[in-house]
Structure formats: structure tokens, C-alpha cells
Design a protein around this nucleic acid. Structure first.
Lengths: 344, 344
DNA sequence: TTAGTTTGTGCAAACGTTTGCACAAACTAA
DNA sequence: TTAGTTTGTGCAAACGTTTGCACAAACTAA
């Protein structure tokens, strides 16, 4: 296989065409000061030599790399995969490449991710923080450097940074109100780490919906964990020991919910007649379980697109900084078999 | 918020320390020709000024970007997400960043992805081709340019390029043999596009397992599609019209299988007693359906790690090209309720 | 002492672009 | 004719690194 040692550069084109590199550079970027005839010669030659611009060099000279960085806790699972899809679609349209990093829910890894992205000179960064991020120095550093930064879903709460979130409070409120409408009287909650905005807000929605409908919040019916499927199983096991027995569960995510569902079935209880279930995230598997799981949809792709749009705006604004923006998307409750006790 | 205009560069350090940029550069890279005293001065100053190397500049000068590119059909679903996780782990350890592109199963997008990665000067590319890639010019171009290239899972079959695949044939063979052992006599197949190595090999495994056990291959029991859940439903509907009725299904992926499962249930047939099911991919949801789905595990993370290791080897080898390598991973059949007719 | 080696540092070019400025040639307006 | 403008191109510096080569100073061995 013949390996071509040398990729054509602008100066190769220039030499073969008897033009200066500056003229060739301008012709390639379709600068109006170059005659049509010259442009055509340059373009033809570029095609002939399979010329491909060296983005690295351009990036160095222009001070922008046309690359965006993303830091997410993990890519598996429906939610982040879809958010990334939304981000990628829009970013590519705008001519940006994407660098995706997973923190694997570890602050230390998140810190390294951020550093790697900064070193790679990305033009902007999108972040959804890990379950355990409580110290934000590495993120402050991004701001300090003047690199545009947008949070989505799991955010660092600060008026100084832009963010796109779902109205998690409303989602929790809607889900629990729905359970109450379906006749549930003792609704438990499987919650997540309360320093995370999403978990806190969903819990708050749960609490307020109870109160609004005249039910007292019973701390014994609230169980906090890290929301893995295993956590859901164990949490449910603990909650089921309460007497009188619960008749509804609202979980902070669907992974915990599906764990809870397994435990409920294992105990021989019927869903939704004995225990009605509702969760959060609208994972793919929600429609594959039996019964199907009621869940709050998070409008993932829209969240991704909105976040990247904010970021692109900030990048476009450049030095004349624009005020931080906060976008709140409205959730949709998808009602399925796991919570439907009454006929429609 | 005070925006620092200027990031410290090597020459800033040099100026403040009264050293030349070359000395500073060498000190930072811990070159043995620099005295320990000088190194210490440089490192201290670097910390003081929050110096961060500009990878772009280094990449331009050194001719390598320390970035790897990945092109996958899509990131949602268990399989690619886990492969990417494996790739990322190893790549980060080796000091490489990752640029991830989704083709969304479109050749045109795949072509653009490749071009974007080449322009970004990645040091190597990992590819799993789209469902519809039959023309490989864009991939040949990568080789022509001398950029290391490794395929995984869905590959361009060529002795000239490295690849990591599962033994899909064996996986299909094992799954179907298992169904036969469980007493199935008329096993249908939901297959994928036959120009794709994975689909062809799984189908071949199906065919050979039947033959080996003395069953004739009945073309009426084979249905090809693009393997979406909807395809699975429709394919199953068509297959169920065959008389005498089938009593087992082997699907080329779990998405199609879960669709098929819905249709089987809808027809009032019992799983696995009337129809036993086995699929491919070991998706997360396989353990959440009822009954759980038997499936061939693809050793995703290992596949990712192996692929990136091949790529890193090629990059390390540089000009003295190493011979293309093909790695075949052995699959594991995970037997679950959907196929278990006999007691253990 | 001298010649040779080691140690530590600096000069300058290079990677492939982009862009401010300069300027010649051709045109335009009087 | 002349002065001014437009059109098209080129020079050269810059982005921030890395690295081959040179060389002074300090040491080493006789």
C-alpha cells in the first residue's frame, strides 16, 4: 500500500500555482478581494491535490478550535445518550466537533475531564455534574479562564452560569398528583442525593403535591440512595416494612423504580392495584416491563439542543459577554400501566 | 467577573524567569538536560501562573494531536455505549482524547464524520459502519492518508485493515443449538441486512446449527429487516402466519426480539412454552421483560478496549507499518426465561 | 598545564494557517 | 494629462509549541 508521506498544504498549492500562500488562503476562504479566476484555479488545484485544511493550524492562529467539550456522568442509559444526540446534531450543523467525556460519576474523573478539555482548547463546555460533585473549583476555573460554560440537567446552582434544566419540581408534583388521583393514600419516595438540584426538586415536588392534596409528609416513607437498580430494590424492601403498608411509589429515576418494581412483585403485591408506581426519565425499558412504567419525560433532545444553542450564542458573543441565561423546560408525564388503577 | 485576557504561555514563563523558551519547554517536559534547580524554578512559576500547555500548538508542531476519533451508528442502546466506555477508559489512560461521531445509520453522515475527524487531525480512527454502508471510499481514503484505522463489530471486510469482532457465527450457532436442546423443532430467524458481517454470520450460525442437528432450513421461517422494534413486531406477525406454527425464534438483535415478543404475547401464545425466544446483544432491558430474554452477550467493553489497543499499537508503530490484525472475541450465551422450557 | 567530556542553556527554524498592511496595476473622473 | 479609487496580490508576522544544533562553562583525566 503506497503511503503518501506528504499531505498537501496551502504552500504546496501556492507553489504549484505561482501564488503566495496568503492569496491561496484567501481564495480558499472565498475572500472577496480575490478574483474569480484565481479562486477557480485554487479550487481546482485543491481538489487535484486532495487538499484538506489543517484545523489545528487554523485553530492555533485564530484562537478557536471549533470544538466543543461535553462532560456527562455516563453515556449509557437513554437520557444522556439522547441529550448528546441533540447536542451533536446542532453542533455539527454549526460546524463544531464534539469531544465527549464521561466522569463515571466520579468527581476526580470530572476534574480530569475538564482539564483535558481546557488543554484541548475547546471553545466551550457543556456539563452535567456527577452524583458526588459538591466542590466546584474545577468548574469555576473554566469561568475564570473565560471559556463559555453551560450546565444542563444536573447543574451547579449559580446565577453566574447559564443552564438548561427540566422543571423537575413540576415533574415530581405532576407524578405524585397523578398517583393521588388514582387513589393512592400512602405514597413513598425513592429519592437521590439532595445536594443535586434534580433530586432535591423532584423530592420537593413530591412533598408539595402531598401537602396540596391534604396528606402529611411521612419521613418514614422517604428513602434516599444513589438510585441504582440495586438501590431501588433495597430501598423498596425497607419501605415495605412500614405499617400500614404503602400503596404508591414515586421514584427519582426509572432505574431505581424498576428495582423497586422487582421487589414489589417478589413480595407478591400487584401493580398497580396494591402498589402504583411512577418514575422519572422515560427510559427505553419503561415500555418493556410488565406493566409498563409511568414516567416523567425529560425532553432530552430538546434539552441538548437548547444547551448547545446557549453555548453557541456565548461563543458568538465573544468578548462582549452576555448575561447568563436559565432555561426551564416543561416535563410531560407519560401515564402507563404501572400507575393506572382507574379506567379512563 | 474579572476576565483574564491572557493565558500564560511558555514565553511568559521564560520572560519572568529570564530563561529561553526552549529551556522552559524542556523543563516542563522533564528533559534530562535541564538541571534540577532550573526545573524546580520553572515548575513553581508554572503553578503560580496557572500555566496550561496549549495542546493545539504542540500537536501542530509534533504532527500528532493525541486525539482519537470514533464513528458509530448511534450511541443509544447498551452495546455502543459500553464499547465507547471501554474505549474511553483505555484511551484516557494512554493520554488520548476522544472525538465521538454518530452516523445515525446514514452513509452520508458517516462520510461527513470521517472527513471532520480527518480535518481535526486525529491520530487514529475507530469505526463501526452504518447499516447501509456498502461503498467504502471514505474509509479507503483514511487508509490512503496513512491514518491508523480499526474497525469493530460492524466491519468493512478486508485483509488490509485491522478489526475486532465477536464470533457472531458461534453466537448464532450457540443460541439456536440451545433452542433445539430446549425442544424447539421449528425455529424462525429474524435477520438483518446480509451485507453486514454481523447479520450474515449470525444467520449462518443459525443455518448451520439447524443443519447440524438434522433440521432443514426453511426459507419461509426466515425474515429479513432492519431490526427495529417495529420491524420485529411486523416480522413476527408475518412469521406467525406460517403453518405449522413455529415454536422458537432466534433474532439478530434484542430490539427486534422484544418487538417479536410483544407480537407473540398479543397473539396469546405463551413464552417459552409455545414459542421460545433468543436474541443477540444482551441489552439492559433483557432482564426487565417478562419473561427475561435469553441473549448472546457481546463483551462490549472488552471489544472497545481491544480495538483501541490495536489502534494505539498502530499509532505507536508509526511509519514502520504493522500487519493488520483481526481479533475475534468469543461470545457467551446468557440463558434466561424466554427460552428455558426444561427445568435445570 | 592541555585536551576532551559533560552539563546546562539558548538560537532559530519549523509545524500550517490567518491577516494587517503595503503596493502595483488598472481603472475612473475630471 | 493628473489625481484618486478600485482591484488583486504579496510580505511578513503571528498563534505556542518542539527540537536540531551550537556553544560556553565546568568538570575530568592525563
Amino acid at each position: 500500500m503506497p503511503v503518501p508521506i506528504h499531505r498537501a498544504s496551502i504552500s504546496d498549492l501556492a507553489a504549484q500555482l505561482n501564488l503566495s500562500v496568503s492569496t491561496v488562503s484567501r481564495a480558499l476562504s472565498n475572500n472577496s478581494r480575490i478574483s474569480e479566476a484565481t479562486k477557480k484555479r485554487v479550487w481546482d488545484k485543491a481538489r487535484e491535490l486532495h487538499y484538506q485544511p489543517n484545523h489545528l493550524a487554523a485553530a492555533l492562529r485564530k484562537g478557536r478550535s471549533n470544538t466543543l467539550g461535553i462532560v456527562i456522568p455516563h453515556i449509557d442509559g437513554q437520557f444522556f445518550a439522547l441529550v448528546v444526540k441533540g447536542i451533536e446534531t446542532l453542533a455539527n450543523q454549526a460546524g463544531f466537533n464534539l469531544m465527549i467525556c464521561q466522569s463515571n460519576e466520579k468527581v476526580e474523573q470530572e476534574r480530569k475531564n475538564i482539564e483535558a478539555l481546557l488543554n484541548a482548547q475547546v471553545d466551550g463546555i457543556l456539563v452535567s455534574i456527577s452524583l458526588y460533585t459538591q466542590d466546584f473549583q474545577h468548574l469555576e476555573e473554566v469561568r475564570r479562564r473565560g471559556i463559555p460554560l453551560v450546565f444542563f440537567d444536573r447543574i451547579m446552582e449559580s446565577p453566574l452560569t447559564s443552564a438548561v434544566v427540566l422543571d423537575d419540581y413540576q415533574g415530581g408534583y405532576d407524578a405524585v398528583s397523578h398517583l393521588i388521583e388514582q387513589g393512592c393514600q400512602r405514597i413513598a419516595h425513592l429519592g437521590g442525593p439532595q445536594h443535586l438540584n434534580i433530586c432535591r426538586n423532584r423530592y420537593q415536588g413530591y412533598a408539595d403535591a402531598l401537602q396540596k392534596h391534604g396528606y402529611a409528609l411521612n419521613p418514614a416513607l422517604v428513602h434516599f440512595s444513589d438510585l441504582s437498580m440495586q438501590d431501588g430494590r433495597e430501598g423498596m424492601q425497607a419501605l415495605l416494612r412500614q405499617v400500614p403498608i404503602l400503596d404508591g411509589v414515586f421514584a427519582c429515576n426509572d432505574l431505581a423504580l424498576v428495582g423497586a418494581m422487582q421487589m414489589v412483585k417478589q413480595q407478591g403485591l400487584r401493580i398497580p392495584q396494591d402498589v402504583a408506581l411512577a418514575g422519572f426519565s422515560n427510559e427505553l425499558f419503561d415500555s418493556l416491563t410488565e406493566p409498563m412504567l409511568t414516567s416523567v419525560d425529560q425532553r432530552c433532545e430538546e434539552m441538548g439542543k437548547t444547551a448547545v444553542q446557549l453555548l453557541l450564542d456565548m461563543i458568538a458573543a465573544g468578548d462582549q459577554e452576555i448575561a447568563p441565561r436559565h432555561v426551564v423546560l416543561q416535563p410531560t408525564l407519560l401515564i402507563r400501566g404501572s400507575s393506572q388503577r382507574k379506567l379512563l
